[in-house]
């Protein structure tokens, strides 16, 4: 009786599990998965040039801004948001954000799907395509 074969079998299985990302992407993955999909801007968004904050800031902090907006609007009844650059906005996901970024599938979802983020915004809010 010698357990060497059993141990080596276990070791091989463990390594297969550890190396999951390598073979999973090889079998099921897309070829260009290491480049993120670009969010597409609508004409209106491109014309506006700036969002409520700098692009780099929006990339990481947009959820924070939405969270604050929800609190100020729903809890404090404050319906005016003054951006860093002095411009005033109506703090509303459906009416402000999605006025320019009306293409949820090509703007929001692209990055969210890529990073496996599943925001619950649209549990309540509708988005333009749906309302038509």
């Amino acid at each position: 009786m010698n357990d060497k074969n059993k141990i080596i079998t276990g070791l091989v299985i463990f390594f297969l599990v550890v190396l999951f990302p390598f073979w999973f992407n090889l079998i099921f993955g897309a070829a260009d998965a290491s480049t993120a999909p670009e969010p597409e801007l609508t004409e209106k968004a491109e014309k506006a040039e700036t969002c409520v904050a700098e692009t780099e800031h929006m990339r990481t902090e947009h959820m924070q801004i939405l969270d604050q907006w929800r609190d100020t609007v729903v809890r404090d009844g404050q319906r005016i948001y003054v951006a860093e650059n002095g411009k005033e906005y109506d703090p509303s996901l459906s009416n402000t954000c999605m006025d320019c970024h009306s293409n949820k599938e090509k703007f929001c979802d692209r990055c969210h799907n890529y990073a496996s983020v599943n925001p619950y915004c649209w549990d309540c809010h509708t988005y333009p395509e749906e309302t038509e």
């Binding site: 390598f22 290491s34 480049t35 993120a36 990481t60 890529y114 990073a115 983020v117």
Partner: peptide
């Protein structure tokens, strides 16, 4: 916060053996 999309780009580069800095 860091930009998760770039983090994923880097991680996917490692996992697909095409490493690079996003």
């Amino acid at each position: 916060k860091v930009d998760v999309v770039r983090v994923k780009e880097l991680a996917m580069g490692l996992a697909t053996l095409q490493p690079g800095i996003p």
